[in-house]
């Protein structure tokens, strides 16, 4: 999904002004977001989640609780799944972030996990879905889950209030199987 053109100035070489001038104490950082290097100026209290959603208009990453209690904000930070709501952007200078917007190919081709979620109807309202998918992509990468109870345990950090869990597990199983089981 393209960024909001109104905010496109946050890319490029010059440190961009982030939002209105309410936070004079900004710190310049660099983040690679979905493969694109960005120089940003962030207030110390800006979380990675708020940076993505409020400043960069990358609203695919969801805010469900803002306290690490639901997993809706799961993104990949330097390849590891984390809750973006509990990360201060200023502390991650130099890191690489992948959000749900960065999973599909440049041609719009869906990631196999995204395809599997659609095929298995692994969501209903869709709000937890980007977090589920980022989490599931990391789970496959981690290589620790094979059996359904392992998948269930290692996906329990992503709450789905619609209760799509059986379908989520089925979608992940399909991707694991097509990866030849993704051993350790």
């Amino acid at each position: 999904m393209p960024d909001n053109p109104a905010r496109a100035a946050t890319g490029g070489p010059a440190p961009a002004r982030l939002g209105p001038a309410t936070s004079p104490q900004t710190v310049a950082i660099e983040l690679t977001i979905n493969g694109r290097p960005r120089r940003l100026a962030v207030a110390p209290w800006t979380t990675l989640l708020d940076l993505l959603r409020e400043e960069l208009d990358l609203t695919g990453t969801k805010k469900g609780c803002d306290h690490g209690q639901c997993g809706s904000c799961t993104v990949l930070l330097d390849g590891q799944r984390i809750n973006a709501c509990l990360v201060l952007a200023v502390m991650k200078d130099g890191s690489a972030v992948t959000t749900v917007e960065g999973l599909s190919g440049p041609d719009g081709a869906l990631h196999p996990m995204q395809e599997a979620f659609i095929e298995h109807d692994a969501f209903q309202c869709g709000y937890c879905t980007p977090g589920q998918i980022c989490s599931a992509v990391a789970l496959v990468e981690e290589g620790r889950a094979r059996a359904p109870d392992e998948i269930r345990e290692l996906m329990s950090g992503n709450i789905c209030r619609c209760g799509a869990y059986p379908n989520i597990v089925a979608a992940i199983q399909q991707v694991l199987a097509s990866n030849g089981g993704a051993g350790r």
Binding site: G60, V100, F123, Y127
Partner: peptide, 16 residues
Amino acid sequence: RSRVDGRAKVTGGARY
């Protein structure tokens, strides 16, 4: 049938 809004929801394109 798969959801017609599936693509929007799995790519983060669906706006709430």
